[in-house]
Measured scan of single mutants.
Amino acid sequence: NKEKKVFISLVGSRGLGCSISSGPIQKPGIFISHVKPGSLSAEVGLEIGDQIVEVNGVDFSNLDHKEAVNVLKSSRSLTISIVAAAGRE
Rank of each mutant, 00 (worst) to 15 (best):
G38P: 02
E3H: 13
S22A: 10
G87T: 12
K2Q: 07
E43G: 10
G29Q: 00
G87C: 14
A85H: 11
S21Q: 13
L16T: 03
P28A: 07
L16N: 00
S39V: 01
S19Y: 08
I25E: 10
G45Q: 01
I48R: 11
F60W: 09
A84M: 09
S81R: 15
S22N: 13
L78S: 04
G49T: 01
K2P: 06
V83F: 09
H65N: 06
A42Q: 11
E43P: 01
V11I: 11
K2F: 09
F31N: 02
F60T: 05
A85W: 07
A85R: 12
G57S: 15
D59Q: 08
C18V: 11
R88M: 12
R14Y: 05
L40F: 06
D50N: 04
S21I: 15
E89I: 09
S33P: 02
G23H: 06
S21D: 09
G45R: 02
A86G: 11
R88N: 14
T79E: 15
G38L: 06
L40S: 08
A42E: 15
S21E: 13
D64Y: 11
I52Y: 00
L40E: 07
I32S: 02
I30P: 01
H34E: 14
G49Y: 02
R88V: 13
E89Y: 08
S21A: 14
L46F: 10
S41I: 06
N56Y: 12
S22T: 13
V53I: 12
Q51Y: 04
S81N: 13
G49R: 00
K2M: 12
P24Q: 12
G29N: 03
L40M: 11
V58A: 14
K5T: 11
S41Q: 02
G29V: 01
K36Q: 15
V83P: 04
H34V: 05
D50W: 03
N62V: 10
A86M: 10
K66E: 15
K27N: 13
F60V: 06
G15K: 14
F7G: 00
T79F: 07
K36S: 14
N56S: 07
S21M: 12
R76P: 12
E54K: 14
K36V: 14
V35L: 05
A84H: 12
E54Y: 05
C18H: 03
V83N: 10
K5Y: 03
S19I: 08
V83T: 07
K36N: 11
I80A: 04
I25Y: 11
K4I: 04
G29L: 01
L40Y: 11
S41E: 04
S41P: 03
S77L: 07
V44N: 13
C18I: 15
G87L: 10
R88S: 14
V11F: 15
E43T: 08
H34R: 10
S19V: 07
E89T: 13
L78M: 10
H34N: 13
E3T: 09
G29R: 00
F31L: 02
V55E: 00
R88H: 14
S22P: 10
E43L: 06
L72W: 03
A85M: 08
K4C: 01
E3K: 11
L78I: 06
K5C: 06
V6G: 02
P24T: 14
G23T: 06
G38F: 07
V55G: 01
V35T: 04
E89M: 11
Q51L: 03
S33D: 11
V55R: 02
I82Y: 15
K2Y: 06
I30N: 05
I52G: 01
A42P: 00
L46R: 00
A84G: 12
